[in-house]
Design a protein around this nucleic acid. Structure first.
Length: 205
DNA sequence: TGACCGATGAAT
DNA sequence: TTCATCGGTCAT
């Protein structure tokens, strides 16, 4: 009997839910990017929720619609990829129903498929530093500008089902300075994964 | 058209 | 903890 990998893509309805639920729910799921014939994938071990209308750290705060943020206001289940610091890309998943501008930032993966390709794209061979940060995982999976706005049930970029981690840590988000936002417990990660980003949460000065 | 900035990463 | 870095964004 041949081994055929089971590829169970999450339905778009998975994402049309409260953003914090989706952020927690994505832990253990598998992000897959197809580059030509090759599949690059990793298990999601760290996420952050961005709550548009009430979250100053969110690009769409306070319900600000611009060319860039318009994708956030669409229905859940689409990718939102943005460029930051003139250097890196960050991959987000749009959540909630149309009209709600919220998303989940995927911050770290445990590399699964296409690891050799990832090493080339990242110019490093250490497994734990391949996808342990939002900029890193985009570089490792080859995710960039062209992957913005893609439906996550398509054939280029999708997320597959997988078992939830045993222990989930909830804490404050990384790199958020706004007083109204920095203390919100909107970061979630697998307590037992060595692949989460290494930086510790920023707290008050 | 241009001033400003940033949900980072890597080195220290 | 610091700091290099640069294209995109958005208000003008």
């Amino acid at each position: 009997m041949r081994k055929i990998p089971l590829r169970r893509k999450l339905p778009l309805s998975f994402y049309v839910r409260p953003t914090e639920e989706v952020a927690k729910g994505l832990l253990g799921k598998v992000l897959v990017h197809r580059m030509g014939r090759e599949l690059l994938s990793g298990r999601i071990v760290e996420t952050e929720a961005y709550l548009g209308a009430k979250d100053p750290a969110c690009h769409s705060y306070p319900n600000r619609r611009t060319a860039r943020t318009s994708i956030l206001f669409g229905p859940g289940g689409y990718s939102y990829v943005y460029f930051i610091y003139g250097v890196y890309y960050c991959f987000n998943v749009v959540t909630e129903q149309e009209g709600v501008g919220e998303a989940v930032l995927v911050r770290a993966l445990e590399p699964l498929e296409g690891i050799e390709k990832m090493k080339k794209l990242r110019s490093t061979s250490r497994l734990e530093s391949l996808c342990s940060g939002p900029g890193k995982l985009c570089q490792a999976l080859g995710i960039g500008r062209k992957e913005n706005g893609l439906p996550l049930n398509g054939d280029r970029l999708w997320i597959e089902d997988g078992p939830a981690p045993e222990r989930v840590i909830t804490c404050t988000r990384i790199g958020i300075a706004q007083p109204e936002a920095r203390d919100l417990p909107l970061r979630f990660y697998d307590a037992d994964s060595p692949h989460v980003s290494k930086r510790s949460p920023t707290h008050r000065k």
